[in-house]
Design a protein around this nucleic acid. Structure first.
Length: 443
RNA sequence: GGUCCCAUCGUCUAACGGUUAGGACACUGCCCUUUCACGGCAGCGAUACGGGUUCGAAUCCCGUUGGGAUCACCA
């Protein structure tokens, strides 16, 4: 059996951390299994769905490196839903209801107030033909509910949560279609999962109770159940589910200069027992993906951890992988020299400016003046090759007796204008003989 | 309020009745002739609380506390 997973966001907003994680895990599992990863836009909510969001979701997935096979959107598939709905109606699995949203809301609040679970009371099922006729006469058109089988216990073995059991009596019959004929999430999702041959439904644990009711829909439609896996959600670094987490999206990460692989490296393993490590390729993440590694407790998403991971990934990126993102003229030697000091690839431009100038001479301490003059003289006579920094500092050490910080720091300052930075042995050749002499002179 | 899930170093977690409670990240120190980084070595650091069961509990049971999810004509 070929594994088919799907990522089914609703195009009502941008992807956020939780979404990205779900997409990534579905993608990883499909890759691991040699299966297919599908993108399905769940745009049944016509009010809130926007094509721009769909575009943004696609762009974000591409940026992350999550490529998908087929793409569908639910708004193209209404005919199929119509047909399945007719079948369910014929077999008595759906029924019309006439309550208004306000009425239902009120009932819910009353039940909640009495400490009872706010489950729909199925009043619509006991409507007499006369009452129905009266509603129709008033011009009220019904919405439709799926009738759960109260005598059919719901159970499945969740790939992450283990054996799950639900009593259907504690669940409301879900509204699946509005009075205007538009669809709600529940049924179309099941119809599509069946039609698209989805074998594994991997989603957040906020869907656990949806799965319970959807399982009866699979059964009512005569389809075999896919495997289900519900992963624990992420929380913000304070431990609570934060609003910020819900708005942290790819745009934010991209602006922060983060590598897609930093996000993938963190999100692939956060909440699992696999160590979170920097990877610059997906393959190891694919190979190590396993539902059994995931815990059932919510894990914290920490942006600091992401930044650290990003830095390590930048340090391992070869020149070829970043060349098109580097400033004009910055070559492999420069990248190799500067890379260890970077937090983001974008930061390379800053150091490249230190190499190429324009250079602003820093103030020089009085006690370093003669020392730097001497450095200038030695450098003018020295052979300017790859070992020039070593020969310069060796000569200075011999002549002045300086060592350690007093030897190196004044030179670094005079040559780069900074106290910290890349290895000077590599920086000096990049700066070049003439420019180096000029800088020493001005100091 | 009902239902469900969870509780081990700062963080992510391992352990499925008997371990000096392990690892990864972070942190600290030392080494690698200045800084930054890499690498190496070492170190710090946890079973939420209270009761049981048991020869023996992180592990099983009950309770408390705390956290998460859900109970939409959102997805």
């Amino acid at each position: 059996m070929t594994v088919i997973t799907r990522f089914a966001p609703s195009p009502t907003g941008h992807l956020h951390v939780g979404n990205i994680r779900a997409a990534l895990h579905n993608w990883l599992f499909a890759r691991l299994s040699g299966g297919q990863f599908l993108l399905r836009l769940d745009d049944t909510d016509l009010e809130r769905s926007r094509p721009e969001y769909a575009d943004s979701i696609r762009a974000d997935l591409r940026w992350l490196g999550l490529d998908w096979g087929a793409e569908e959107k639910q708004s193209d598939r209404f005919a199929l839903y119509e047909a399945r709905f007719a079948a369910l109606r014929a077999s008595g699995h759906v029924y019309p209801a006439y309550e208004t949203a306000q009425e239902l809301d009120l009932r819910r609040k009353i039940l909640l107030g009495r400490g009872l679970p706010p489950v729909y009371d199925r009043a619509a099922l006991s409507l007499t033909p006369e009452q129905i006729a009266a509603h129709e006469a008033e011009g009220r058109t019904p919405h439709w509910r799926f009738k759960l089988d109260h005598d059919q216990p719901i159970a499945w073995t969740d790939l992450i949560r283990g054996d799950q059991r639900f009593d259907p009596k504690l669940l409301s019959d879900p509204v699946i279609r509005r009075a205007d004929g538009s669809w709600l999430y529940m049924l179309p999702s099941v119809i599509d999962d069946i039609d698209m041959g989805v074998t594994h439904v991997l989603r957040g644990e906020d869907h656990v109770s949806n799965t319970a009711t959807q399982i009866q829909m699979f059964i009512a439609l005569g389809a075999p159940l896919p495997a289900f896996a519900h992963e624990a959600l992420l929380t913000g670094s304070e431990g609570k589910l934060s609003k910020r987490l819900g708005s942290l999206g790819v745009a934010h990460f991209r602006e922060a200069g983060l590598e897609p692989m930093a996000i993938a490296s963190l999100l692939a393993r956060l909440g699992s027992s696999m160590p979170i490590e920097p990877f610059d390729l997906m393959q190891p993440l694919i190979d190590s993906f396993d539902f059994a590694h995931f815990g059932r407790a919510p894990a914290r998403f920490d942006e600091t951890e992401l930044a650290t991971l990003n830095q390590k990934i930048v340090h391992m990126l070869p020149y070829a992988a970043v060349a098109d993102r580097l400033p004009q003229g910055m070559d492999e030697a420069a990248w190799d020299a500067i890379r260890p000091n970077l937090e983001t690839v974008a930061g390379a431009a800053d150091w490249w400016r230190v190499v190429t100038g324009p250079f602003e001479a820093p103030p020089v301490a009085e006690e370093d003046r003669d020392f730097l003059t001497l450095a200038h003289r030695i450098l003018s006579d020295a052979l300017f090759d790859a070992g020039v920094w070593r020969s310069l500092t060796d000569a200075l050490k011999a002549e002045t007796g300086r060592k350690g910080k007093t030897l190196f720091l004044p030179l670094r300052r005079a040559l780069t204008g900074r106290d910290h930075g890349p290895d000077m042995a590599q920086m000096l050749p990049l700066i070049g003989r003439d420019e180096a002499l000029t800088r020493l002179n001005r100091a």
